[in-house]
């Protein structure tokens, strides 16, 4: 856990973000809450593969913090492995909306023709939190991205630490901290979502 969350409050843009904390052990894999969380993540991965970002946004909470700090190699015991004050994504609802709006124009050339995407989601575990209608969900994601016919495909591997909130009977993403596994990304840009 310590490994996954060293950066939780390190963004200056996170003041609006939920501060909900997870509690207790991971739920049993047959727990109804875990099954719902897993189902939500799998459904989300299909939306992200299809670049159906309009639908995706419908399940993003108004106070979301979508955050992926830059990883750095540091000596064992340095106490941090992310670049102080720098991220790849440090998004609120408005900036996510702008990104989605851009993809919905006819001039987002980088994804025209679109990448072929496959988000592989695994290692899912679910926790209760100190807030009644919110759960914390860890997952691992491996994104395979292929563009064109001659380019090498690229892979992005990351851990995700999500906060899901039930609003009017639906789960919404209220916080996502992404811990990417490379310090130097091997993909031409992050014109995708994790």
């Amino acid at each position: 856990m310590a490994q996954l969350r060293p950066h939780a409050n390190s963004s200056p843009l996170a003041r609006h973000a939920p501060t909900t904390m997870r509690t207790g052990e991971a739920l049993s894999f047959s727990d109804e809450l875990h099954l719902e969380a897993h189902r939500w993540l799998v459904n989300e991965s299909y939306l992200l593969d299809a670049q159906d970002y309009g639908t995706w946004l419908e399940s993003i909470a108004h106070d979301v913090h979508y955050f992926m700090p830059v990883r750095v190699t540091t000596a064992l015991g340095a106490g941090y492995s992310t670049s102080p004050g720098m991220a790849h994504w440090d998004e609120n609802r408005y900036s996510l909306e702008r990104r989605v709006a851009r993809f919905q124009t006819e001039h987002a050339w980088t994804e025209d023709p679109p990448s072929r995407l496959r988000h592989f989601i695994t290692n899912v575990r679910t926790f209760r939190t100190d807030v009644e209608n919110e759960i914390a969900v860890d997952s691992a994601v491996l994104l395979f991205r292929s563009r064109g016919d001659v380019n090498e495909p690229s892979l992005i591997s990351a851990g995700r630490d999500d906060l899901l909130r039930k609003v009017d009977g639906r789960w919404m993403l209220a916080r996502r901290h992404i811990l990417v596994d490379e310090s130097v990304l091997r993909t031409q840009n992050l014109a995708i979502f994790l």
Binding site: L13, D90, S95, R99, W109, T110, Q188, N189, L190
Partner: peptide, 25 residues
Amino acid sequence: KELSYKAYLMCFGSTGMFEQDDVEN
């Protein structure tokens, strides 16, 4: 500083909305 950082992230760098289309070219 905070808003300027936000502006950078939205426009340039690995996720920047300007940059994405440049690199594709």
